[in-house]
Amino acid sequence: MSLIMGCASSSKKETDFYDLEVEKFSSSVKSLLTDLEFLKKEILKVNANKPSIQRILIEADNLWMKKDLKQASSTLERGLRIAKDESSLYLRLAHLRLEQGLVKESSAFAERGLLNKGASSWELLLLKIYSAQKN
């Protein structure tokens, strides 16, 4: 975590996170970033800005914990219909799709999330990691 944050904190502006090239990270950082369990834990900590989406996240996370990936996914998609500017939804969908074995779609959800103007630096960095998974 500190390795990533160290890397992230070296950037001054938020847009710098958007420009980060995960491929150029050192191998030790990269190995951490490929630890899916670690990433999942980090993603589940990302909250929504809107209370209605937060409620949906809780519902989806519970389904996810029960390994009901289909219902968890459709619950998150329900959230996207209400708010398309919530990074928490894109991040969860990116990871869910990876668990479903859909690597290209995981990356596409992350890329979509990266276009979200309201994403925080930490969310951008996580999205960058998922968008790079296709490589």
Binding site: S73, S74, E77, L80, L93, S107, A108, E111
Partner: peptide, 9 residues
């Protein structure tokens, strides 16, 4: 049957 979002860049 669910019809999940399909996204491809």
């Amino acid at each position: 049957l669910s019809y999940p979002y399909k996204v491809e860049q």
